[in-house]
């Protein structure tokens, strides 16, 4: 008999939680940069906003990749489906699928920074 935990639910949602954090941060960063006239600045030799957004995107994708890979390994590691409350196979699969969806959303949201000027 396994421990009756709740943690697989937030664990399954981890990818989307990363997405939400990324989304909030890039939107907030651009809003502040434009409102405070910082968008003309540079960071690491790159225009500030694109550099910041791409940096945050790289971090977010890394986090999602770690979440997805760990889930993948656990699925490949042959979960029998009888792992009980803490690690049901379905929840691990869900973690992976959600990580993939989140990665897509993060990628799409970073794309505009390459094509659209920050504050115009």
């Amino acid at each position: 008999m396994q421990v009756a935990g709740f943690s697989p639910i937030p664990a399954a949602l981890a990818g989307l939680i990363v997405w939400a954090a990324h989304f909030g941060l890039i939107y907030g960063a651009n809003a502040v940069a434009c409102a405070r006239g910082l968008a003309g600045g540079r960071w690491l030799g790159l225009p500030l906003v694109p550099a910041l957004v791409l940096g945050l995107t790289a971090l977010a994708l890394l986090a999602v990749a770690v979440i997805g890979l760990r889930a993948w390994q656990r699925l490949e590691g042959g979960l029998s489906g009888q792992e009980g409350e803490n690690e049901p196979r379905f929840m691990v699969w869900l973690t992976l699928a959600i990580a993939l969806l989140s990665a897509l959303a993060i990628l799409w949201e970073a794309l505009p920074v390459l094509l659209v000027p920050a504050c115009a």
Binding site: C34, A105, P112
Partner: peptide, 17 residues
């Protein structure tokens, strides 16, 4: 700002998947 709008445009696309 346009870029901010574009984030939401992309998110709207993502939700259609």
């Amino acid at each position: 700002p346009q870029l901010s709008l574009s984030f939401f445009s992309a998110a709207s696309f993502a939700v259609s998947v």
